[in-house]
């Protein structure tokens, strides 16, 4: 069974030869593997694709995360983006000051400005034997980005109707991008909804604002490509809701008790997670990685429906040896 077959078998509800290993290696960590700065790679699509491919070749995990480049005019739905050195891209200006700005929102063509080039290049480089995942922001996350997180979350009480309208207005950006990623040949798409975490908003607000928009977006996407729903930090109080969104896989972060999550969702969805990207991968050593991987396998491997991953993006300062250890111990403890 090759890497891609292993990943697709899990998506199909089958038990593979071993648990697939698909850590969140993106543009935050991968450029280090080829000795390049993060800003160089985000601004040069070929560099970004080559870094992501090189990392997968170097460490031998089963699936890569394809990231879009920033293109010649870095922006998110018209919000200017800056990146410097080994940071990650950061939105520096918001564009929705109020309801009047909704009609001026422009949903960009994902294929414009060369932003999809790294995805196509990575898919071509990886070939048919390994899986490639794409990633898109959720409507809730896009809305927070164009409005500004503080104003957006203040609106929850100030003007909840506006929050719903804003989320509806940006949903086509999520859907169009997911469709473009499917056209580019990725095997699944990660729907990132980081701000929907119950480390940030209450379960009630999740159900009022984020959950319906996840369901709507996934209903439009899932016919084309399987969806992996990612929510950072704690998502335990909303896990049962997440399992009803239509996502094939839930990518859960380290604060969630993996065994409890498995018990909560049963075989309804696949779980992907949840090695701590900071405490274990960045700050820990090989022994910490081994202990975390063994515990994760013990909690979620049985009966299938599990993909070993980090809970979030591996930070650039993480030692490369820890990623090698993740794969080594994932292979050792992941066999069926």
């Amino acid at each position: 069974m090759n890497s891609r077959e292993r990943f697709l078998a899990v998506l199909a509800g089958e038990i593979p030869d071993r648990v697939p290993i698909v850590p969140v290696v993106d543009g935050y960590f991968a450029p280090k593997v080829i000795g390049r700065a993060n800003d160089e790679c985000y601004l040069d699509g070929a560099c970004l694709a080559d870094a992501l491919a090189a990392s997968m070749t170097e460490f031998g995990y089963d699936g890569a995360i394809a990231e879009m480049g920033l293109g010649p005019e870095p922006s998110v739905l018209g919000c200017p983006v800056e990146i410097e050195g080994n940071d990650v891209p950061l939105v520096v200006e918001t564009i929705v000051g109020g309801r009047d700005d909704l009609e001026n929102l422009i949903i960009p063509d994902p294929w414009s400005g060369g932003k999809m080039e790294p995805v196509e290049r990575l898919v071509a480089a990886v070939g048919a034997d390994q899986a490639v995942l794409g990633s898109v922001r959720s409507p809730f996350e896009y809305a927070a980005t164009v409005r500004g997180l503080v104003e957006f979350m203040t609106d929850f009480y100030r003007d909840p109707g506006f929050v719903h309208d804003l989320i509806d207005a940006v949903r086509p950006a999520t859907v169009k991008l997911a469709e473009a990623l499917a056209d580019a040949g990725v095997d699944a798409v990660v729907l990132k909804d980081s701000f929907a975490s119950t480390s940030m908003i209450s379960p009630d607000h999740y159900r009022e604002f984020a959950f319906p928009s996840e369901c709507d977006a996934i209903a439009e996407i899932a016919g084309r490509i399987p969806v992996i729903l990612h929510i950072c930090r704690n998502s335990m109080p909303i896990l049962a809701d997440m399992a009803r969104t239509g996502a094939a896989v839930l990518e859960i972060d380290s604060p969630v008790d993996l065994a409890a999550a498995k018990a909560a969702v049963g075989s309804a969805v696949i779980l992907k997670g949840n090695i701590d990207a900071v405490t274990v991968m960045e700050k820990g050593g090989a022994a910490d990685v081994e202990a975390a991987v063994e515990a994760a396998m013990g909690a979620a491997k049985a009966g299938g429906g599990f993909i070993l991953s980090t809970g979030d993006s591996i930070p650039r300062p993480a030692p490369e040896a820890n990623l090698a250890a993740l794969v080594e111990f994932g292979e050792r403890y992941g066999n069926y």
Binding site: M153, T154, F156, T198, I201, S202
Partner: peptide, 11 residues
């Protein structure tokens, strides 16, 4: 409380 409630108090 979560972030929106803290923001409401900050306002």
């Amino acid at each position: 409380y979560f972030i929106p409630e803290m923001l409401r108090s900050a306002e």
